[in-house]
């Protein structure tokens, strides 16, 4: 395949970035998108050009490290997949492909396509846990959980923390990410005890870190590689209001 790649290059957080065009004819349809970039990088290195930096690790869609804005979509054109699972079969010979980092104030660019997502960790540190010490747990069956609730909690818990929701949102809101964690714990009896403090602390931290507000556009849900539902945001709002009304 012959491709024209327009890739965002930025030396570091303080530098000014720009698109650089690469004519690349080393792609094959059975490559993944990241393998195509690997091949481009090999070519660049041999030409003594600094290769394109990008985060990646498991390359099987579960660690959440990879994430690029490809042709206007987080993780590219495929539905419900991460960038590492995006196949070059999705593209045609002769295509022009734009590749950018996540764009959000709370996710500053580190280099090229790498962004700093520690803001997500900070939100989790603010309250994304159930306070239980090692060794203090009762037998697992001491607290039965309705199957439907457990399944729903699981569906919220599959978030991989990649940040596609923030990148997709015109407001760069982190509501889908935060709501998934809030919902997971709110649905489980273990998580109810700290539910009110948790939702207030996490929302407060999210606001402090410069994420935008939610205007219910739904782009986050449409682009989420794990298909996390907007219902989580509704649940977050409910938890938040209830915590405010009856603290």
């Amino acid at each position: 395949m012959k491709l024209t790649l327009k890739i965002w290059r930025q030396k570091n957080a303080d530098a000014k970035g720009k698109f650089v065009t690469y004519d690349f004819d080393g792609a094959s349809p059975d490559m993944s998108f990241l393998e195509m970039l690997d091949a481009l990088n090999t070519k660049l290195i041999k030409a003594r050009i600094d290769p394109v930096a990008f985060d990646h690790d498991c390359r099987e869609g579960i660690c959440g490290a990879c994430g690029m804005y490809i042709n206007g979509h987080p993780h590219g054109p495929g539905k419900a997949i991460t960038t590492c699972h995006l196949s070059m079969r999705e593209f045609k010979d002769g295509d022009t492909i734009y590749v950018e980092p996540w764009r959000a104030k709370a996710f500053p660019v580190v280099k090229d396509l790498i962004v700093d997502r520690t803001a997500f960790d900070k939100i989790q540190i603010a309250g994304g846990f159930i306070s239980t010490n090692v060794g203090s747990a009762p037998d697992s069956h001491a607290l039965p959980v309705e199957k439907s609730k457990a399944d729903e909690a699981f569906n919220s818990a599959v978030c991989i923390g990649c940040g596609a929701c923030v990148a997709a949102c015109k407001n760069a809101s982190a509501m889908l990410f935060v709501s998934a964690k809030i919902a997971q714990f709110a649905l489980l009896p273990q998580g109810r005890i700290e539910a009110k403090e948790r939702v207030q602390a996490m929302v407060k931290k999210m606001d402090e870190l410069g994420f935008g507000n939610c205007s219910n556009t739904g782009a986050c849900e449409a682009e989420c590689p794990k298909e996390i539902s907007l219902v989580n945001i509704a649940r977050l709002n409910r938890e938040f209001y209830c915590a405010k009304v009856s603290p």
Partner: peptide, 22 residues
């Protein structure tokens, strides 16, 4: 067994049956 109990207490959503047990 301690490991499973601890994970459950931390809110790890293991699969459950219709009686609510793991």
């Amino acid at each position: 067994n301690d490991v499973i109990d601890h994970f459950t207490a931390m809110g790890v959503p293991f699969a459950r049956d219709y009686g609510g047990n793991l």
